[in-house]
């Protein structure tokens, strides 16, 4: 088996394990999300695998719940981004004309503001909750999806087979869902993977800055922030949640790389 395939299998296994852990957090985590079950800052032990935090909560349990929150939030935001971005991007390409122009300009405008700054501004005003986070991140990320979906669709729309469909008298629905989307779908799927891993980084950055899910809810970015003071003593525990993020994003990237190579090979045939 080529190296890329081996890495992709490892990546897929990692994603599977992390997602299962997140889904079944209440059954897997040894303690509750916010239960104070020990003394402050207990070291690693058999009872508390990664020790406890400043108010005696089990860090491993908070990591497991945190994964559930971070991944769930990022997944929802990515789905929203794809729903908005691919629908509008494909529409802009297929309809062309002023629809394309207006949507394109609006998208450029949103992309002209740095994402993190924009998110900070809006979240400061409307306040952070799961819903506002999903909405803000979803809309900001949809600009990237829009760009890709539009450029993919534009190149497809100008192919002769779409011209043939138009000449055949096909409806707009057929052209979009039967001619354009099936061809752009593999690339959009790969982009979904990349966007998802980027969104996890984004969500955790916001949490790290204190604008993610609000305490006492656990999430991977906030866990680093909560326990950051331990780092000054050379304790790496606060880095574990960040490590979990890295593991997940690397795993997603490995699978996406393999998948992209596969669809490139197929289209080169």
């Amino acid at each position: 088996m080529p190296l890329e395939t081996v890495l992709a299998v490892i990546g897929a296994a990692l994603i599977f394990a992390i997602v299962i852990t997140a889904l079944f957090a209440p059954w897997i985590a040894p303690y509750g999300e916010n239960a104070s079950v020990g003394g402050a800052y207990e070291p690693w032990s058999a009872v508390h695998v990664f020790g406890t935090d400043s108010i005696g909560r089990d860090i491993l349990s908070r990591m497991i719940y945190g994964g559930r929150n971070t991944i769930g939030l990022a997944f929802a935001a990515t789905c929203l981004a794809f729903f908005i971005g691919s629908a509008l991007g494909t529409a802009a390409a297929v309809l062309g004309g002023w629809v394309d122009l207006v949507l394109g300009r609006l998208n450029d405008l949103l992309m002209a503001i740095p994402q993190l700054i924009f998110a900070l501004l809006i979240l400061t005003v409307v306040g952070s909750s799961a819903y506002t986070l999903i909405a803000v991140i979803g809309v900001l990320e949809s600009t990237r999806v829009f760009r890709l979906a539009r450029s993919l669709s534009v190149s497809i729309v100008h192919q002769d087979f779409v011209e043939v469909a138009k000449l055949r008298g096909e409806s707009l629905g057929w052209i979009v869902f039967r001619e354009v989307v099936p061809v752009s779908f593999p690339n959009l799927l790969a982009e979904f993977g990349l966007r998802f891993s980027f969104t996890i980084l984004f969500v955790s950055s916001l949490s790290f800055l204190g604008l993610g899910l609000q305490p006492p809810t656990a999430d991977w970015g906030a866990l680093v922030r909560e326990n950051a003071s331990l780092i000054a003593f050379g304790d790496v525990t606060p880095l574990l949640p960040a490590g979990a993020i890295a593991l997940l994003t690397v795993a997603v990237n490995l699978v996406v790389d393999w998948y992209l190579a596969k669809i490139r090979r197929r289209s080169a045939l």
């Binding site: 002769d160 087979f161 000449l167 008298g169 039967r178 099936p182 061809v183």
Partner: peptide
């Protein structure tokens, strides 16, 4: 009228949807 006038293109690669 649509069915009566058909076209065949130069590049068959581009004229056939790769996913159909």
């Amino acid at each position: 009228e649509l069915e009566s006038v058909q076209i065949i293109h130069q590049y068959p690669d581009k004229a056939l949807n790769p996913r159909q």
